[in-house]
Protein backbone atom coordinates (compact mmCIF):
# COMPACT_ATOMS: atom_id res chain seq x y z
CA UNK A 1 0.00 0.00 0.00
CA UNK A 2 2.56 2.50 1.03
CA UNK A 3 4.53 1.66 -2.08
CA UNK A 4 1.80 2.99 -4.26
CA UNK A 5 1.41 6.13 -2.28
CA UNK A 6 5.01 6.98 -2.76
CA UNK A 7 4.71 6.56 -6.49
CA UNK A 8 1.69 8.80 -6.62
CA UNK A 9 3.69 11.74 -5.44
CA UNK A 10 3.84 14.33 -8.15
CA UNK A 11 6.43 16.81 -9.19
CA UNK A 12 5.76 20.25 -10.57
CA UNK A 13 2.71 20.49 -12.85
CA UNK A 14 3.76 19.98 -16.45
CA UNK A 15 1.33 21.70 -18.78
CA UNK A 16 -0.19 25.01 -18.07
CA UNK A 17 -3.96 24.99 -18.33
CA UNK A 18 -4.22 28.69 -18.91
CA UNK A 19 -5.10 28.24 -22.59
CA UNK A 20 -7.70 25.58 -21.84
CA UNK A 21 -10.55 28.10 -21.50
CA UNK A 22 -9.63 29.55 -24.87
CA UNK A 23 -9.84 26.17 -26.55
CA UNK A 24 -13.05 25.32 -24.81
CA UNK A 25 -14.57 28.67 -25.70
CA UNK A 26 -13.65 28.13 -29.30
CA UNK A 27 -15.49 24.82 -29.29
CA UNK A 28 -18.30 26.44 -27.41
CA UNK A 29 -18.78 29.13 -30.01
CA UNK A 30 -18.68 26.58 -32.77
CA UNK A 31 -21.46 24.58 -31.22
CA UNK A 32 -23.44 27.68 -30.35
CA UNK A 33 -23.40 28.70 -33.97
CA UNK A 34 -24.29 25.33 -35.44
CA UNK A 35 -26.91 24.53 -32.86
CA UNK A 36 -30.47 24.63 -33.91
CA UNK A 37 -32.77 24.31 -31.01
CA UNK A 38 -35.61 21.94 -31.59
CA UNK A 39 -38.13 24.71 -31.76
CA UNK A 40 -41.22 22.68 -31.36
CA UNK A 41 -42.06 19.83 -29.11
CA UNK A 42 -43.07 16.83 -31.15
CA UNK A 43 -46.64 15.87 -30.47
CA UNK A 44 -46.85 13.33 -33.23
CA UNK A 45 -44.81 10.20 -33.72
CA UNK A 46 -42.87 10.36 -36.93
CA UNK A 47 -40.63 7.85 -38.56
CA UNK A 48 -39.68 9.13 -41.96
CA UNK A 49 -39.41 6.73 -44.91
CA UNK A 50 -36.08 5.91 -46.50
CA UNK A 51 -35.01 7.16 -49.91
CA UNK A 52 -31.86 7.42 -51.97
CA UNK A 53 -32.30 10.50 -54.14
CA UNK A 54 -32.01 12.99 -51.32
CA UNK A 55 -31.20 16.63 -51.62
CA UNK A 56 -30.09 18.66 -48.66
CA UNK A 57 -32.11 21.60 -47.46
CA UNK A 58 -29.61 24.38 -47.28
CA UNK A 59 -31.00 27.44 -45.57
CA UNK A 60 -32.71 26.49 -42.37
CA UNK A 61 -34.32 29.88 -41.97
CA UNK A 62 -36.11 29.39 -45.27
CA UNK A 63 -37.61 26.06 -44.32
CA UNK A 64 -41.04 25.70 -42.77
CA UNK A 65 -41.85 22.39 -41.21
CA UNK A 66 -45.13 20.56 -41.42
CA UNK A 67 -45.35 17.40 -39.36
CA UNK A 68 -47.87 14.67 -39.99
CA UNK A 69 -48.22 11.54 -37.90
CA UNK A 70 -50.18 9.80 -35.21
CA UNK A 71 -50.33 11.66 -31.88
CA UNK A 72 -47.92 10.31 -29.28
CA UNK A 73 -49.51 8.27 -26.45
CA UNK A 74 -49.68 11.32 -24.17
CA UNK A 75 -52.07 13.07 -26.54
CA UNK A 76 -53.70 10.02 -28.09
CA UNK A 77 -56.38 9.95 -25.39
CA UNK A 78 -57.59 13.40 -26.43
CA UNK A 79 -56.73 13.52 -30.10
CA UNK A 80 -57.28 9.90 -31.08
CA UNK A 81 -54.77 7.81 -32.96
CA UNK A 82 -55.61 8.94 -36.49
CA UNK A 83 -52.77 10.87 -38.16
CA UNK A 84 -52.82 14.58 -37.40
CA UNK A 85 -50.97 17.62 -38.67
CA UNK A 86 -48.68 19.50 -36.34
CA UNK A 87 -47.68 23.07 -37.11
CA UNK A 88 -45.12 24.62 -34.77
CA UNK A 89 -46.19 22.99 -31.53
CA UNK A 90 -49.91 22.75 -32.08
CA UNK A 91 -52.19 20.24 -33.66
CA UNK A 92 -53.81 21.73 -36.71
CA UNK A 93 -56.26 21.17 -39.52
CA UNK A 94 -55.36 21.52 -43.17
CA UNK A 95 -57.41 24.72 -43.21
CA UNK A 96 -54.89 26.36 -40.88
CA UNK A 97 -52.06 25.94 -43.37
CA UNK A 98 -52.59 29.28 -45.18
CA UNK A 99 -52.39 31.12 -41.86
CA UNK A 100 -49.27 29.20 -40.89
CA UNK A 101 -47.62 29.97 -44.22
CA UNK A 102 -48.53 33.66 -43.99
CA UNK A 103 -46.86 33.71 -40.58
CA UNK A 104 -43.75 32.05 -41.90
CA UNK A 105 -43.49 34.55 -44.72
CA UNK A 106 -43.85 37.42 -42.28
CA UNK A 107 -40.90 36.11 -40.31
CA UNK A 108 -38.64 36.54 -43.31
CA UNK A 109 -36.13 39.34 -43.01
CA UNK A 110 -35.86 39.79 -46.73
CA UNK A 111 -39.10 39.49 -48.73
CA UNK A 112 -37.10 38.68 -51.84
CA UNK A 113 -36.33 35.30 -50.37
CA UNK A 114 -39.99 34.36 -50.47
CA UNK A 115 -39.50 32.30 -53.59
CA UNK A 116 -36.69 30.32 -52.07
CA UNK A 117 -38.81 29.18 -49.18
CA UNK A 118 -39.43 25.48 -48.89
CA UNK A 119 -42.02 23.54 -47.00
CA UNK A 120 -40.43 20.50 -45.45
CA UNK A 121 -42.94 17.76 -44.89
CA UNK A 122 -41.93 15.39 -42.15
CA UNK A 123 -44.45 12.64 -42.53
CA UNK A 124 -44.66 9.27 -40.86
CA UNK A 125 -44.29 6.18 -43.06
CA UNK A 126 -47.66 4.78 -42.13
CA UNK A 127 -49.69 7.87 -42.92
CA UNK A 128 -52.23 7.55 -45.71
CA UNK A 129 -51.83 9.91 -48.64
CA UNK A 130 -55.23 11.55 -48.19
CA UNK A 131 -54.07 13.96 -45.51
CA UNK A 132 -50.81 14.65 -47.33
CA UNK A 133 -52.71 15.56 -50.47
CA UNK A 134 -54.92 17.92 -48.48
CA UNK A 135 -51.85 19.73 -47.20
CA UNK A 136 -50.39 19.91 -50.68
CA UNK A 137 -53.64 21.35 -52.03
CA UNK A 138 -53.63 24.03 -49.33
CA UNK A 139 -50.04 24.89 -50.15
CA UNK A 140 -50.88 25.19 -53.82
CA UNK A 141 -53.79 27.47 -52.99
CA UNK A 142 -51.48 29.96 -51.28
CA UNK A 143 -48.97 29.55 -54.09
CA UNK A 144 -46.32 28.05 -51.84
CA UNK A 145 -45.05 25.45 -54.19
CA UNK A 146 -41.62 24.31 -53.12
CA UNK A 147 -42.01 21.17 -51.10
CA UNK A 148 -39.58 18.63 -49.80
CA UNK A 149 -40.55 15.24 -48.49
CA UNK A 150 -38.07 14.61 -45.72
CA UNK A 151 -36.61 11.14 -45.72
CA UNK A 152 -33.72 9.27 -44.23
CA UNK A 153 -30.83 8.07 -46.33
CA UNK A 154 -31.50 4.50 -47.38
CA UNK A 155 -27.80 3.87 -47.89
CA UNK A 156 -26.97 4.73 -44.30
CA UNK A 157 -29.29 2.15 -42.84
CA UNK A 158 -27.24 -0.85 -43.85
Amino acid sequence: MSKFKKKGKKGAPGITTASLPDIVFMLLFFFMVVTKMRDSEMKVKIQVPAATELQKLEKKSLVSHVYIGSPIPKYAAVMGSAPRIQLNDQFADPSQIPFFIANEIEKLSNPKLRRAMTCAMRVDKEVKMGIVTEVKTELRKVNFRKVSYLASDAGELE
Binding site: T118, L139, Y149
Partner: peptide
Amino acid sequence: IATTIETDAGLNLVLPPW
Protein backbone atom coordinates in the same frame (compact mmCIF):
# COMPACT_ATOMS: atom_id res chain seq x y z
CA ILE B 1 -26.24 17.84 -26.37
CA ALA B 2 -28.61 20.39 -27.84
CA THR B 3 -26.95 20.36 -31.25
CA THR B 4 -28.50 18.64 -34.19
CA ILE B 5 -25.87 19.04 -36.84
CA GLU B 6 -27.35 16.90 -39.53
CA THR B 7 -29.26 19.00 -42.00
CA ASP B 8 -32.59 17.77 -43.18
CA ALA B 9 -32.57 16.05 -46.49
CA GLY B 10 -35.53 15.18 -48.60
CA LEU B 11 -37.03 14.69 -52.01
CA ASN B 12 -37.71 18.07 -53.53
CA LEU B 13 -40.54 18.87 -55.82
CA VAL B 14 -42.40 21.90 -57.05
CA LEU B 15 -46.16 21.73 -56.85
CA PRO B 16 -48.21 22.83 -59.82
CA PRO B 17 -49.94 26.20 -59.49
CA TRP B 18 -53.47 26.13 -58.16
